[in-house]
C-alpha cells in the first residue's frame, strides 16, 4: 500500500467499475445477438469490448496503481500479454494446416 493511500468510506470505485463492466458486457451481448453486423465486425467489436473491460477491471478492482511494486506489476502484465499472444496466435499459426 502506498503511504498516501486512504480508505474511502464508500467503495465508489468498485460500484462504478461494476456498472461499467455490466454495460460493456451487455454491449457485447447486444453486438453478438442483435446488432445484425457482419460476423467479422462482431468479432472485432466484442474483442475490443473485452480488452476495454480487462483494462477497466485492472484499475477499478485489481488496484494496479496502488501497490508499491509497480515495476513488478508492469513486467508481469507485459509478460502475461506476451504469453497470451504466444498461446493464441502461436496455436492458430501452428494449427493452420488443419484448420
Amino acid at each position: 500500500m502506498g503511504a498516501n493511500h486512504h480508505h474511502e468510506t464508500f467503495p465508489w470505485k468498485h460500484i462504478v467499475g461494476f456498472i461499467l463492466s455490466l454495460v460493456l458486457t451487455f454491449a457485447a451481448l447486444w453486438i453478438a445477438f442483435s446488432s445484425g453486423l457482419a460476423t467479422k465486425a462482431i468479432l472485432v467489436g466484442i474483442v475490443v469490448l473485452a480488452v476495454l473491460q480487462a483494462v477497466l477491471q485492472l484499475f477499478m478492482f485489481m488496484h494496479v496503481t496502488e501497490s508499491d511494486s509497480g515495476k513488478i506489476q508492469t513486467i508481469n502484465m507485459a509478460y502475461s500479454f506476451f504469453i497470451a499472444i504466444v498461446v493464441v496466435a502461436g496455436s492458430i499459426w501452428t494449427m493452420a494446416f488443419v484448420l
Binding site: V86, G90, T94, F97
Partner: peptide, 18 residues
C-alpha cells in the same frame, strides 16, 4: 521455453515456415 513447443511434433506436418 515458451516459444519452442512445436519441436515436439515437427512431423505433424505444420509446414516449413512453422
Amino acid at each position: 521455453s515458451f516459444i519452442v513447443w512445436v519441436h515436439h511434433f515437427f512431423t505433424m506436418g505444420a509446414g516449413a515456415a512453422v
